[in-house]
Design a protein around this nucleic acid. Structure first.
Lengths: 216, 216
DNA sequence: GACCGCGTGGAGGTCAAGATCGGCGTGCTG
DNA sequence: CAGCACGCCGATCTTGACCTCCACGCGGTC
């Protein structure tokens, strides 16, 4: 009756005891699968434990609670996305190349995390109301937007608020487009998608009409 | 001890009995306040009933459950936004004017619903996982995107998938920008915001380089 | 002026899900 | 070989939120 090892794809590494570090990583992987599949609220700690092939007490010996578990995953993904975008912005001084890089970063992020759907933790969380989560999610978008706004403000002469509005639109467009592209199962190649978006955004923002320079 | 009518701003229309229609509208208003303030999950039926100054049974005599109550509100708001966008698209044949109209529709929607924050029901719901909710929310964006994609495909010669990608980016940019603008407490006037966004999007999409016309 | 029905209110049931306690087996160490 | 420590599990508690039952009071009618 009691089979030794569940070779089911639904269970990860069932079997004997593991060192804490390995067990922790395994629990994080299981939790990510469940959170991504069901969202935070519908995800049950029982499901996560079962998914990992352990019992609930073990789960609580590694994480104080559901929220901390979620935040650990969220931080990891936010770090990844933030680093990728940052690198794309710092890699060059050519603004068109920057747009290309940031777009690629977004598309790569949703594409790479398609296997596990990790991007949903950031872009489609059902915890937008929780302050801790909200802060972390907005921090990524804000940091990117601010960096873009610096360049936009310098190049267009727009004041800060105006530059931030356009920067929000640009980064938001990239994010929404990448999500749509993945949700539609990549109807076109990633290269084509990035090229199209790059063309759209670059035509929009480059040589943006200087305005609002008072007097002079 | 028992004050007759709660003139508190926290309670709506406490006092005697109301005709069903009026009571229903009042319950919807109370529910909207609570849902917007706390999100779906954190909102308690007790809070909604208390907010409306009635007891829970009456709430359940008007709505079968929490979900139906939420969906009623969601449908109303989705209808409003969809109608506004539709009207903006149908009002003219000039595509730049269409962009202006749609942008205005989005900004008006978040602005007008700032008093009660109704736009959060659509744009920041914490029920993105529930099929019924997801379907309704996506339907609005999808319909808009499809309408825009029709025009984009016709004007640029792009194939359907490419046109839809760009249309998603355009409508997504409008939505994200409007939400940012409100979240930042309207740092610039609505007219300026719409003008800036219109300039950005129109420069991006107008005279988009024709490509992908095979052979011929 | 008395009666009857309907809408209202407070108190309670049910259940799901997060969080926890004593016992067991296994592998290392002297 | 014996003791020990550690990781693990089954079973349970508790909280909180959705959802109904018995008493009360107001409006229409003869």
């Amino acid at each position: 009756m009691s089979s030794l090892v569940g070779s089911d794809s639904s269970e990860l590494g069932r079997g004997g005891r593991l060192p804490r570090s390995a067990r922790r990583k395994q629990l994080l992987a299981a939790a990510q699968q469940v959170f991504v599949a069901n969202g935070y609220h519908a995800a049950a700690m029982d499901d996560i434990a079962e998914r990992a092939g352990v019992s609930k007490p073990v789960l609580y010996q590694h994480f104080p609670g559901k929220m901390e578990l979620y935040l650990a995953l969220l931080d990891t993904q936010a770090e990844m996305l933030g680093a990728a975008v940052n690198q794309a912005l710092a890699a060059t001084d050519d603004n068109r190349a920057r747009i290309h890089g940031v777009l690629t970063a977004y598309f790569e992020f949703v594409d790479r995390s398609d296997e596990d759907g990790a991007f949903r933790l950031i872009f489609e969380t059902d915890l937008g109301n929780d302050p801790a989560v909200r802060e972390r999610v907005e921090a990524v978008a804000q940091k990117t937007m601010q960096a873009v706004a610096d360049t936009v403000a310098g190049d267009t002469g727009l004041d800060r608020a105006q530059a931030e509005l356009l920067s929000t639109a640009l980064t938001g467009a990239a994010q929404v487009a990448a999500r749509w592209w993945l949700a539609e199962d990549r109807p076109i190649s990633q290269e084509d998608a990035v090229r199209l978006m790059e063309s759209l955004l670059w035509r929009g923002i480059s040589n943006f009409p200087r305005q609002g320079e008072p007097g002079h």
